[in-house]
Amino acid sequence: MNDVPEDLKKLEKKAFRATLDDGFLDILFGMVILGFGLNAVIPFKGASIIGGSLIFPLFWNAISVIIFFVGKKFISIPRIGIVKFSPKRRVKKIRFKIFMVLMLIINTILLVIILNNLFIIEDVNRYIFPLVFGLLIITLPLSVVAYFLDFSRLFIIGLFGGLGFFLTELLYPLVGEPLDFILVFVSIGSAIIMGGMIILIKFLKTHSLPADMP
């Protein structure tokens, strides 16, 4: 695509963006963030602390991914049609899918670490650590994806998701644990899901199922 003129590259981006305008990616990330908060509420205590804490994130993330792919297959594609992108874009899409799987694995490990207090640095300021941690683990990778996909909403999702840990630390003296986690991540996750739902409703209104096509 390097030899493709800039105006045509914009067209390619527009064609690709059309595949993201259904809100399912927003809903997926919103559900993952919501899972952080719900995990603090739903007690899945197994034989071990780590094993018990792993059940819900794995289950929740799997459900989120299933909703994403089912929604794409049965709601989006019948309405927007089928497109095959250039080989370079296809490589990008594969990289993105690998990245998403890695993100979900990291997210699961992260939940286990946080919920079991396995990683506490006593000397570091209690506000600085969660801020840097969230920005590095969530905001930075999502921003990289947002940049490469030209998907600006992901910057905002990444920013709010990343600030979540810092906000829980701010709320902790006021509401205690686990309400700090629940309030912050359920609020952020729900807001992102709501945003995704609004985009999905708009998408459904503007993209009706074609009666017949050539």
């Binding site: 493709v4 049609g81 089928i82 497109v83």
Partner: peptide, 9 residues
């Protein structure tokens, strides 16, 4: 700029 697309797309 695309490899291929259907009529609907």
């Amino acid at each position: 700029v695309l490899d291929s697309a259907d009529y609907l797309y």
